[in-house]
Design a protein around this nucleic acid. Sequence first.
DNA 1: CCCTATTCGGTTGTATACAATCAAATTTCA
DNA 2: TGAAATTTGATTGTATACAACCGAATAGGG
Lengths: 149, 149
Amino acid sequence: MNQPAANDANELLKLDNQLCFPLYALSRMFTKAYQPYLQALDMTYPQYLVLMLLWEHQELTVKELGEKLLLDSGTLTPLLKRMEQRQWLSRRRDPSDERSVLIKLLPAGQALQAPACQIPMQLAEKLLLTPTEFENLRAQLHKLLAVLR
Amino acid sequence: MNQPAANDANELLKLDNQLCFPLYALSRMFTKAYQPYLQALDMTYPQYLVLMLLWEHQELTVKELGEKLLLDSGTLTPLLKRMEQRQWLSRRRDPSDERSVLIKLLPAGQALQAPACQIPMQLAEKLLLTPTEFENLRAQLHKLLAVLR
DNA sequence: CCCTATTCGGTTGTATACAATCAAATTTCA
DNA sequence: TGAAATTTGATTGTATACAACCGAATAGGG
């Protein structure tokens, strides 16, 4: 009954009746929930996302990172430069295509994987979701992601 | 089966197996989906959120806005100052408690409600969700919000 | 082999987010 | 009542986001 097909357009202009605001708020609350764990490793949430991809793939171009994270170069370039300064990764032009920049995981970045492994599990415990609820929600979000992509 | 109780901790360190990343990505994609509509009214998404609350309540303190939007003064103060410059709202100290700042909707801000009314409906059409799916997802997100609050 | 279109990062400028800190006003309670 | 604790915004500094634009490198057609 709180559906977009409702007749009163003003009702739609309330935070509670939208999908958008809870997504916006939840996204920031999750980031805040990660913060104490990430702070202990001295990294930010977007940096953690980049590392997750590099732990899985070792080396990716900026373009590939941007495609997977849905972030553009204006966001990634300075973020990756900060991570380069900490020796977590290296940045170099692809010799076979000088337009691309290869981002490669370095030992200091690899070393962060072990302590980071504990984070998702510790957080999941706080959510109070059953496995079924968790999976249903995850699937719904992925479905929406696919639609909006 | 992609549940946090899974045995392989490395599996949890993948974007696809988390709730957090789809929320983060979806939040930004929604903001981007709103952008063309909001751009036509020359406002940003967080400004639109503030206006939605003021359309409903006319006058709120910065603290109340922060509680409803889960944003702190470091974010709201400059945002509200920009909106004040456009005469969408006024900012003044509460005479009965000089610590509080009252944010009041002005005519120029009120005038934005009518054109904004169309936005949620236009966007909802793009989501390809049934009313039931929409409502289930909304309820799940609110439940999570309540847990993490 | 040229000329044009496209691709890919980088840069700039604006607008959030948010931790940390501060100052003023108010409340509390010894 | 009056000092201490609390509340409330504002400020500062850092880190995203992202639109708009730029330049170098590459690809593609004639």
